[in-house]
Computed example of a mutant assay.
Amino acid sequence: MKRRVHIIYTPGLGDRYDPIRRACLSVWRMYGVRVTMVPMRWMSDEAYGDKRARVEEIIHKSSDEKIVLMGESAGGSMALTLYAEHVNTLVGLVTLCGKNTRSDNVSSYLYRRNPAFQDSMHRAEVVAIGLSRADRRRFVSVVPWYDPTVPVAQTLLPGCQKMTLPAVGHLFSIFAMLTIYAPLIVHRVNKL
């Protein structure tokens, strides 16, 4: 019997968009996958480890499914870190406009307002170095044609898969990925 794909979704900054994210992701079950969005509450004083623990709890509870981590924007760093540390139990990693590299290219203002994001970025850069070639091939970076907020080059790791979709901008591209491009993304997830 084929195991169902379970996408564990870590959102980016902008906690106020979580209801919109949740509504968009609820439609994905029509494409045959289960999605669990784990709120990151980036702007809270909650420590990085507490945010991470919520995601790990879902990973451990879903061991009978094919788990794919999906990180959006700042959530890409969290998903990348968890993927690297659970690479033997996860099917793969997908990021949507994911801020996966260049922790030095984030404004100090954003880090002050979202302190756990800085920890997440630094950890992601450290663990990314240790990913094998095979692990990187199970990582898909979904990007738009152009994103001024998270430049495409900062979403990619050498050897990862790149999926470029016709969109421009950051918020618009993420919204398009969660809605009109959802079937394409789920199709790619199912190929991991």
Rank of each mutant, 00 (worst) to 15 (best):
N100L: 05
S108V: 08
R102H: 15
L131Y: 03
N105H: 15
E125Y: 02
S132T: 13
D104C: 14
N114K: 05
F117P: 01
R113N: 10
E125H: 01
R138H: 14
F117A: 07
A124V: 03
D104Q: 12
A116G: 15
E125R: 06
S108G: 14
M121D: 03
S108A: 15
D119L: 04
A128G: 10
V126Y: 06
Y111M: 13
R113C: 13
S120Y: 01
R137C: 07
G130T: 01
A116Y: 02
R112V: 03
R102D: 14
R137D: 00
N100G: 09
L93H: 04
R123L: 14
P115Y: 00
S132D: 10
A124H: 00
Y109K: 13
D135N: 10
V126M: 09
R133F: 15
S107M: 08
L131W: 02
S108Y: 03
V126Q: 11
V127Y: 03
H122S: 13
R113Q: 12
V106Y: 04
R123I: 12
H122Y: 13
G130Y: 09
G98R: 00
T101P: 09
D104S: 15
L110V: 15
R138T: 11
S107W: 07
M121H: 06
P115S: 04
K99M: 09
K99V: 01
V126S: 07
R113M: 11
P115V: 01
S132I: 05
A128R: 01
V127T: 08
A116D: 09
P115L: 07
L110A: 13
L93F: 10
S120M: 10
R138Q: 15
I129E: 03
S103I: 00
R136V: 04
R138Y: 10
N100E: 06
S120K: 03
N100M: 12
A134F: 07
S132N: 03
L96Q: 01
E125A: 08
R133P: 15
S132M: 02
A134C: 06
N105F: 14
L110F: 13
S132E: 02
A124N: 05
A124Q: 02
A116W: 01
Y111T: 04
V106F: 07
Y109T: 12
F117K: 00
R136T: 10
V106E: 10
R102M: 13
D119W: 01
Y109Q: 07
R136I: 07
Q118T: 01
S132P: 06
F117L: 09
I129Q: 09
F117S: 02
H122D: 11
V94C: 09
Y109M: 14
L131F: 04
K99F: 06
D119A: 12
G130S: 09
V126K: 08
N105R: 15
T101V: 01
V126C: 09
L93G: 10
I129N: 06
R112S: 14
A128M: 02
R137V: 02
R137S: 14
R136M: 13
R112Q: 12
D119S: 14
F117W: 02
R113D: 02
N105K: 15
D135E: 13
N100I: 07
L131D: 00
N100H: 00
N100P: 04
